[in-house]
Design a protein around this nucleic acid. Structure first.
Lengths: 209, 209, 209, 209
DNA sequence: AATGAATGAGGATTCATTCAT
DNA sequence: GATGAATGAATCCTCATTCAT
């Protein structure tokens, strides 16, 4: 077995993504994926242990790519605030350029059963780590408010961009996802409220953690 | 068929929620749900057209309850900002008090196939409407920044609280969900950044949309 | 589920025996057995846990019948020697009258995989017990030689009749199986050799356990 | 193809025996056998037509060895009775010294499908011939009773030793197989019953065939 | 209305065998 | 002669749904 080395490994992953995006998670039989990849069904099992392994591998490979892109985008940002801006921008740009992948990650893969979901959760931790590092730096440098738990900040950041991409996919890609990067960044960092006493910013911060 | 009038209708929905929460979406067979409800499997089909109909009905009924609770919580709020505070608080409190339901909505139901997901999306619109009304009022009254599209504000609000509840469920209910209401509200309204020029608050607003 | 009570349980067992005897163990798919029984394939699983369970149940039911027949045949035998005669006779007569069953037990079921074989071995113990009781009585009463371990006597008795039935099946039922009862009994009890000092009969017996 | 001449032919047969004994018949894939033999899977097909051919060849080769050993052991026996004694002794000794082979012949190979079984039956004829010759000589010389068909005597002799070896294997080699040779011989030749009228020895012989 | 026995469609996976190198 | 990557046929089992009672 050409352990991941052959082009067939990548071809099968690509075929899986295509078939899942096109036909939906529950219609993505191994036979269809194999046909899309131009190999026999049995060949899939030379490269993947079983179907869950194929799906998890697909997710891992693609998320790895996103993580790498995210980390790269952070290198030339001067502070946590800029890093967050780049991170959001990079996330939306990456998926805007990969509609098929967006359908798979936002919609179809979420239908996977619990065992696959559990693996996916583990893989997601790598992505969360990138966010968490930005948050930590931001709080340490005093740019980000310390009155809120880092985990809850992560929920804000990830929840918002995740929901944004999902809405974009469900809309049928009807709006410009990349263009949402800057407003979303402004919203997250500056807050929804305009007033000087926006949020409980002043008193909240002085009193807590 | 006693159109939804019998107590069996409610009993079957309750049983569905219990079984799905306990065994997971993919192990929630009609036969188990019927047994939990104390009826025969065939009886389920006297009250529901088919399994997707049962699942969608469950989601609709429960979300209707959440919407009602949300709307009620808004009545004595004096402005959009307070309404948002109440909304977030009510959302987290409702699910904190219904762990079984939280498991079902945040984890298990998301494994449903695309047809059910589509119905659920439609039902969610009713919940989004509550959020959207608050946003509209907030922007109209000048409390919420107008430089960001209402839809994107909704993504921020809903994405954040949805991700928060999901994280709570996945953690095994290890933290106090309700207690997150105020910090989350502060974060959303006041923004992540501390500095007076937090976000692009000042200039961003004057320049955009 | 009509736990074994319905006639379908028996019908499926009978169909399994027929299909296995006709098509061979490895061609006996559940679908064929179900068709032979006049039920849908899924119905088989209302009565049996899985395919191995069906096969083991068939063997258990049929061997139970043989054991019952064997025990019944022993009731009016006055001593162990007569019991052995009846046992051999009954064994050969039972299978001579059930060619389909003979094919299944002697040829086809032996192709079952190890898990089924292990279950079958357990079931066989009930049949061996009948033989062992005869042997014990025979040795206790002094009719059977005590110089040979009971287990080895069982190997002689069972090995001989088992091989006899197998040879009969493989021959295509070309000879009268029942007619072999008496000569086989004579051979087993009286020994192959004619001479008075046949075997180590005299000295062997006086010396050993 | 070096028709059976290469050492790979023997190596593959040996590997097949080892793998079947270790993993069981149904887990003995060609790929595993090839790996055990230190060759590629495709190489097996340079020496054997297909898998059944490999299995049959293994059986033929090993049984040929047993037959040769049996015939050799008979050379210095002075009469049929002694030949039978040597035969039984040789059979048990051969397998006692080859546990791997015993597992294969007594347990695993019997799971082979009908086509292989049929071939094996043919091969067994060579072994039966050795037994039959002893029986013929014994009956001709008056040592063995003539009242029982030679075939049935063969069933007695072979059935008993076959069952004995099988019981030994199933017990996990828990007893001394070789030590059973003499008691088994005594049992077969002298008969199970002690009394002077043991079996139907006297009258049976004068009356029949 | 209620029952629950019966139905039957649908798909992942293994492994003997081939053949280009 | 030797390799081993690729092939693709073949089958058990689950469970939503029906319908005779």
């Amino acid at each position: 077995m050409a352990l991941k080395s052959g082009d067939k490994y990548a071809a099968i992953l690509e075929a899986a993504q295509t078939v899942i995006a096109r036909q939906g998670y529950h219609s993505a039989q191994i036979s269809k994926i194999a046909a899309e990849a131009g190999v026999a069904a049995g060949t899939v099992y030379l490269y993947f242990k079983n179907k869950p392994d194929l799906l998890v591998s697909l997710f891992r490979e693609r998320l790895g790519m996103l993580i790498e892109g995210a980390r790269t985008s952070l290198t030339d940002a001067r502070d946590a605030r800029e890093k967050l801006r780049h991170f959001i921008s990079q996330h939306l740009r990456s998926l805007a350029a990969r509609r098929e992948l967006a359908v798979v990650t936002q919609i179809e893969m979420r239908q996977a059963d619990s065992s696959v979901q559990h693996e996916i959760s583990q893989i997601m931790k790598g992505y969360f780590r990138v966010i968490d590092e930005i948050i930590e730096e931001g709080q340490a440098s005093g740019l980000f408010r310390r009155s809120v738990e880092p985990l809850q900040i992560r929920n804000l950041v990830f929840g918002t961009i995740d929901q944004t991409v999902t809405a974009w996919v469900l809309s049928g890609f009807k709006f410009d996802l990349e263009a949402l990067a800057e407003p979303t960044f402004a919203l997250i960092t500056g807050g929804l409220c305009i007033t000087s006493e926006g949020g409980t910013q002043k008193h909240g911060d002085s009193g807590a953690a």
